[in-house]
Amino acid sequence: MKKLLYVVTLALTVISPALANPPATFTEAKVVAKQRIYLDQADSAMGDLYCGCKWTWVGKSGGRVDLKSCGYQARKLQTRAERTEWEHIVPAWTFGHQRQCWQNGGREHCVDSDPTFRAMEADLFNLYPSVGEVNGDRSNFNYGMVSGVAPQYGQCTTRIDFQQKAAEPRDEVKGLVARTTFYMFDRYQLSMSRQQQQLLMAWDKQHPVSAWEKERDQRIAQVMGHANPFVTGERTWTLGYKPAGGSVAASVPAQAKPTLASASIDGAIIGNRTSHVYHLASGCPGYSQVAQKNQVAFGSEAQAQAAGYRKAGNCK
């Protein structure tokens, strides 16, 4: 009977926004993430996001990585490799560039002036402890399949292709990464390239939700007031999926929401360096036909036009 009452109470806590208290800033989110989500995970078998390394907590939200626990070898930055950092699974650069505030003054301006950006930056679903060096190397790269790259971090199987600007995380978290990305793009109504959608859909299918991912989702839901519907199975991402948005995104004035003209994730606007024609991820048939060697990513249509590119004539 007691167990049944606990389960019912947990379920109510997860789904009730009235009981939630989401962090308001990224700084606050890191502390909350430590205390409410990952406190007992520092020495778990799952380990950090990219390498599965264990760590010990230091200070309010930091950590010191146990490199031997995962066979990690620093690629270049030993000091940074020895500390944990909070990785945004969907980089702040990616969602920030789809906000007008970023165009007007970068990340600091977004933090100061845009409540939706602050909500995205502090969203606990998007945060995960990571080996600092790998977090830095991943930068704002899109996820991708990385081939022809020798092991970079000892026994850590995450790969970074600096030339192609792509990051392939270890198999154990590919599903989690995919479903987190779907959540962020859905809740905050972001634009995702067709190529990225196809890759993440494959990872979602190949790597089903694990017991830890379910537990993580429940812990975060108790703080945020809602679960990730792509983890619970309430929603499924399909090619061309139309983001539904969430309460935070819906409360932002329409003029502040991202448009195709201001969208600027790596891959949302692609130019062909040979023809000097650019294509949008939505409405341009030639978008997926530009050879990778000829691709140039732009932050907005205005940037593409300023660089001498013109919009493809077959865009709807």
Rank of each mutant, 00 (worst) to 15 (best):
A24K: 15
A24S: 13
F26W: 15
E28W: 02
A29V: 02
A29S: 15
A29Y: 08
A29Q: 09
K30C: 08
K30A: 05
K30E: 12
K30T: 14
K30M: 10
V31T: 15
V31R: 12
V31D: 12
V32H: 09
V32S: 04
V32A: 08
V32P: 11
V32Q: 09
V32M: 09
A33Y: 07
K34H: 13
K34D: 10
K34G: 08
K34L: 12
Q35S: 15
Q35Y: 01
Q35D: 15
Q35F: 01
R36A: 15
R36P: 08
R36Q: 15
R36H: 11
I37W: 02
I37R: 06
I37P: 14
Y38C: 04
L39N: 10
L39G: 00
D40K: 11
D40W: 13
D40S: 13
Q41P: 00
Q41A: 12
Q41C: 04
S44M: 10
S44G: 10
M46F: 08
M46V: 13
G47L: 09
G47I: 06
D48F: 07
D48E: 10
L49Q: 10
L49E: 02
L49R: 11
Y50W: 13
Y50T: 11
G52W: 01
G52E: 09
G52C: 09
C53W: 01
C53S: 14
C53E: 08
K54E: 14
K54T: 11
K54C: 05
W55L: 05
T56R: 13
V58C: 01
V58Y: 06
V58I: 11
G59L: 04
S61C: 01
S61Y: 14
S61P: 01
G62C: 04
G63Y: 01
G63P: 08
V65C: 06
V65K: 03
V65P: 00
V65D: 06
L67F: 04
K68C: 01
S69M: 08
C70R: 05
G71K: 12
G71V: 09
Q73W: 04
Q73R: 14
A74H: 07
A74K: 08
R75N: 07
K76F: 02
L77G: 00
L77W: 12
T79A: 15
T79S: 13
R80L: 12
R80A: 02
R80G: 00
A81G: 13
R83M: 12
T84I: 14
T84R: 07
T84F: 02
T84L: 12
W86L: 11
E87G: 03
H88L: 05
V90D: 03
P91N: 10
P91F: 07
A92V: 08
W93N: 11
W93V: 10
T94I: 07
T94N: 14
T94P: 00
F95Q: 07
G96Y: 03
H97M: 09
H97K: 13
Q98Y: 05
R99I: 00
R99Y: 00
Q100V: 03
Q100G: 01
C101D: 08
C101S: 15
Q103G: 10
N104P: 00
N104V: 01
N104K: 13
G105A: 05
R107H: 04
R107D: 00
E108K: 12
H109P: 00
C110K: 04
S113Y: 11
S113F: 09
S113K: 10
S113V: 11
D114V: 04
D114M: 03
